[in-house]
Design a protein around this nucleic acid. Structure first.
Lengths: 203, 203
DNA sequence: CAGAAAATTTGCTGATCACGCAATTTTACC
DNA sequence: GGTAAAATTGCGTGATCAGCAAATTTTCTG
C-alpha cells in the first residue's frame, strides 16, 4: 500500500514541517522566508506551495494533525461510551502523545514550538483557523454519537465549538503555569468543568 | 472633543468598511482588490493600509467592533450583578443593536454580510482572529468581576474563551436556521446552556 | 526489462499585497 | 495668519502564492 511515492511525499512533508519549525525558533518567525524553508528541506520553493498553501501552514501542521487526530479518535471510541467520556479521551489523546501524561517534563523544544503558536499572532490565527475549520467534523461526530441532527440541533455544534475553545484555554494556561503543571489532567479539568457548567466561583 | 480631524478619520474608516463590504457582496471576495476598495472610498490605496493592515480587515471591521463593544459592555455592567447575567447582556448587546431583538427580520444585506463572514474561509479566519484576540481583555474583565487573578486562575480565561465560542456557534446556527429564528433569544440560550453545563441530551 | 502512463517536482511568470520612507496636503492651535 | 502636528499620498521594495508547461521520477503493463 505504501509505495515509494507515498513514503517520499510523507518524508517531504515532514522535512518541510521540521525545517519550518526549526528556522522559526532559531531566527524568529519574520526572519524566515518560504525560500529558506524550502532550501532547508532540500526542495524548490515552488514545491513548498504544493504541500502548504501559506508560509504559516507548515509551522502549524503538527497542530493541524492533532486536531484531526482528535476527531478521528472520537469516531474510534466505543459507541456505547458516554459522550463526555469519549470526548475527553479524544481531545486529550494527541496531547498526551506529545506532551506526556505524567510527570515527565516535556522537551523544551516542543514546548517552545507550542508556545510560539500562541504568542506569534500570525500562528495563533492559523491555529484557530485549523481548529475551528475542523469543528464541523467534530460536531458531526458528536451528533452521530448522541443521535442528533447536526443541521437542525444546536447542541452538537455548541459542544464542538466550546470543547475546542476549552482545549485552547487549557493549553494556554499550561503554557503560563508557574510552577509547571502536567497538561493532560489540566485538560481533563477544563472539559469536566465545561460539561458540568461554569457557575461563578463565589456565588 | 471631536475635532474635524477625528470625524474625518471615522468617516474614512466607515467609508472603507462599507466600500469593502459592498464590493465583496457584489463581485465576490476574490474579485475585489485593495485598489478597488480604496477607489470606492475615494482614498489612495496606500491610505487603505494606514487604516487596515490586511485586505480582509476592512470587511470584518464591523465584527471587530462588536467584539470590542461586548468587552466594553461587560465592564459597564453594574458591579454587583451576577456574572452570567452581566456576561449574557454584554455579549448580546451588539447583536441586538444590529440584528434586532424581536421579530423584525434583519435587513437581507446585513444578513448576507454576516453570512459571508462564516462562509468565506479567509473572512472566517479573520473573524476568529479578532474574536479570540480580544479574549485576554474579556478574561481580565471577568476576573475583575469575580475577584480572581487572571494570570493564575484558569476560570476567567476558560469562561472567556468558551463564551466567545458559544456566540460563534449561536450565530452560525442562526444563519442556517430554517425557518428563521430571532438571534438574541438564541444567543441567550447558548449562554444559559454553557453556564448550566452541557450534559448529553439523552443521558 | 522496455516503454508507456501517471504523478511529482521545478522554473518561470504575473498578480497582489503590505510596508518603509519622504514629500505633500490638511487640520489644529496660538 | 502662521506655525506645528497629523494625515494622505506616491514610489519603491520585498515577499507571498498560484497557474502553466516542461522535465523528472515512480508506477504500471506487456
Amino acid at each position: 500500500m505504501t509505495g515509494l511515492r507515498e513514503r517520499k511525499k510523507q518524508a517531504t512533508r515532514e522535512a518541510l514541517m521540521t525545517a519550518a519549525l526549526r528556522l522559526a525558533l532559531a531566527r524568529g518567525l519574520e526572519n524566515v522566508r518560504v525560500e529558506d524553508i524550502a532550501a532547508e528541506a532540500g526542495v524548490s520553493p515552488r514545491t513548498y506551495n504544493n504541500y502548504f498553501s501559506s508560509k504559516y501552514e507548515a509551522i502549524t501542521a503538527r497542530h493541524t494533525d492533532r486536531v484531526r487526530a482528535s476527531v478521528a479518535a472520537l469516531r474510534a471510541r466505543p459507541p456505547g461510551e458516554p459522550l463526555w467520556e469519549a470526548l475527553t479521551e479524544a481531545m486529550v489523546r494527541p496531547w498526551a502523545e506529545h506532551a506526556g501524561t505524567t510527570d515527565t517534563a516535556p522537551p523544551p523544544e516542543l514546548l517552545a514550538g507550542i508556545r510560539m503558536l500562541s504568542e506569534e499572532p500570525a500562528l495563533r490565527a492559523e491555529s484557530l483557523r485549523v481548529a475551528f475549520a475542523a469543528d464541523g467534523e467534530l460536531a458531526a461526530a458528536i451528533a452521530e454519537r448522541v443521535g442528533a441532527d447536526p443541521a437542525r440541533d444546536l447542541y452538537p455544534s455548541l459542544v464542538a465549538v466550546t470543547v475546542t475553545a476549552a482545549v485552547q484555554a487549557g493549553v494556554a494556561h499550561w503554557l503560563r503555569a508557574d510552577p509547571p503543571v502536567p497538561l493532560v489532567p489540566l485538560l481533563r479539568d477544563c472539559l469536566r468543568a465545561l460539561a458540568a457548567g461554569l457557575p461563578a466561583p463565589s456565588e
